[in-house]
Amino acid sequence: MDQRISFVTLAVADVAATRAFYVDGLGWEPSFEDGDVLMLRAGEHLMLSLWSRAGFEGEVGPIAAYDGVAPITLAHNVPTPEDVDRVLAEAVAAGADEVGPALERDWGGYTGYFADPDGFRWEVAYNPGPIGASLLP
């Protein structure tokens, strides 16, 4: 098996509200949508696939109930700390909940988080190391 991820699929409560956030708010372009599924290209070979919970459960199985934050984060790396602040502000303007302000981290980066309409946490990160640089377009 090749070492890569092609799709990240998340179950969402309301596909229309999710679309309003990502497409209308953040300006992302849909690659596919049918009312129950919204797919957004997130990289050259990566698709963010957002499914209605019912559709997700129909294909994958029952969704586990939990309290608190889903045990996953998505990250968007940027080239400067100023870009972290700008992207966080754009996300909040689009309707995201700001989870916390951006901070300088012990590992040398500068990151902050926002939550999309379903509470999925997005990290906006300036990572000054070689791995961070390798992830920028």
Rank of each mutant, 00 (worst) to 15 (best):
Met1Asp: 05
Met1Asn: 07
Asp2Val: 08
Asp2His: 04
Ile5Pro: 00
Val12Glu: 06
Asp14Asn: 15
Val15Trp: 05
Thr18Ile: 09
Thr18Arg: 03
Arg19Gly: 05
Ala20Gln: 13
Tyr22Arg: 02
Tyr22His: 04
Asp24His: 10
Asp24Ile: 08
Asp24Thr: 14
Leu26Asn: 05
Leu26Tyr: 05
Leu26His: 05
Gly27Trp: 07
Gly27Tyr: 08
Glu29Trp: 00
Glu29Lys: 13
Glu29His: 06
Asp36Asn: 10
Leu38Thr: 14
Leu38Val: 15
Met39Gly: 11
Ala42Val: 08
Ala42Tyr: 05
Gly43Ala: 10
Glu44Leu: 02
His45Ser: 14
Leu46Trp: 07
Met47Thr: 15
Ser49Gly: 14
Ser49Phe: 10
Leu50Pro: 02
Trp51Ala: 04
Arg53Phe: 04
Phe56Val: 09
Glu57Ser: 14
Gly61Asp: 13
Gly61Met: 13
Pro62Gly: 11
Ile63His: 01
Gly68Phe: 08
Ala70Cys: 05
Pro71Cys: 02
Pro71Ala: 11
Thr73Pro: 00
Ala75Pro: 03
Ala75Arg: 06
His76Pro: 00
Val78Tyr: 03
Val78Lys: 01
Val78Arg: 01
Pro79Thr: 05
Pro81Tyr: 01
Pro81Gln: 01
Pro81Val: 01
Pro81Met: 01
Glu82Ala: 15
Glu82Ile: 09
Glu82Asn: 11
Asp83His: 00
Val84Tyr: 00
Val84Leu: 00
Asp85Thr: 11
Leu88Gln: 02
Ala91Glu: 01
Val92His: 10
Ala94Val: 14
Ala96Ser: 11
Pro101Tyr: 06
Pro101Gly: 15
Ala102Met: 01
Ala102Tyr: 00
Leu103Tyr: 05
Glu104Ile: 02
Asp106Tyr: 02
Gly108Phe: 03
Tyr113Ser: 04
Phe114Ile: 14
Ala115Gly: 13
Asp116Gly: 13
Asp116Met: 14
Pro117Trp: 09
Val124Thr: 02
Ala125Gly: 13
Ala125Thr: 13
Tyr126Gln: 02
Asn127Trp: 02
Gly129Asp: 14
Gly132Lys: 03
Gly132Tyr: 01
Ala133Gln: 15
Leu136Val: 13
Leu136Gly: 10
